[in-house]
Amino acid sequence: MNSAPPTSLYDRDILLWVEDTVAKLKAKDFEHLDLENLIEEVESLGISQRNALVSRLMVMLEHLLKRLYVDSPYDYNGWERTIRTQRLEISFLLEDTPSLKAHWEASFTKAWSRALKIVRQDYPDTPFPDEWPFEADLEALLDRPFWQTPP
């Protein structure tokens, strides 16, 4: 059973396709662009940025929940380092893509439900809150040391 090799450059070598597309755009050779795949790739950029925000928020919230509710002083430092790292990465992401701020609330909601599910599986005997007990705005989540003033 021989399957036919992919025929388009996009299917054969995405990096080469990107380089070729960039060269055509720079040369204003719009007539020879692979518009279908170009549109798909541009659309996926926005989705990728939103997913990156949710992913980083999820990791940060998991570690915030563990730091706030799991009684394991030995792990506090590691959890706090992860929180700081995710905060920094989120700040960089928002600096590079400011329009993501408009998606903050939806991203937080999605990340919260995923983070809560994970920590409840990892720590089934720990009573985690159903709702985030603090303010969920961007500034608070990127700056506030919530564990210093627990709920």
Rank of each mutant, 00 (worst) to 15 (best):
A4Y: 09
D130F: 12
Q148K: 15
E19C: 00
G78T: 15
W17I: 10
L65W: 07
G78E: 13
P6G: 07
A23C: 00
I118A: 08
T149D: 10
A102E: 13
L16D: 10
T97N: 14
I118F: 01
G46R: 09
I39T: 12
E31H: 05
H32N: 15
Y69D: 10
A27M: 03
D13W: 03
R87Q: 15
T97E: 03
L33P: 12
D125C: 04
A136C: 06
T82A: 07
A106D: 14
L93W: 05
E135F: 05
F30N: 07
P129Q: 13
E43L: 08
P150A: 12
F128A: 13
L25I: 00
W147P: 03
P124G: 06
W147V: 02
V70H: 05
L38I: 09
F146Q: 05
E131D: 14
M60A: 11
L57A: 11
R114H: 04
R12F: 01
T126L: 09
S113W: 00
R120L: 02
D11L: 01
D11W: 01
D137T: 11
W79G: 06
E89H: 06
V70K: 13
P127C: 14
E62K: 01
S55P: 01
H63F: 15
P127K: 13
D11M: 02
P127A: 07
D137A: 03
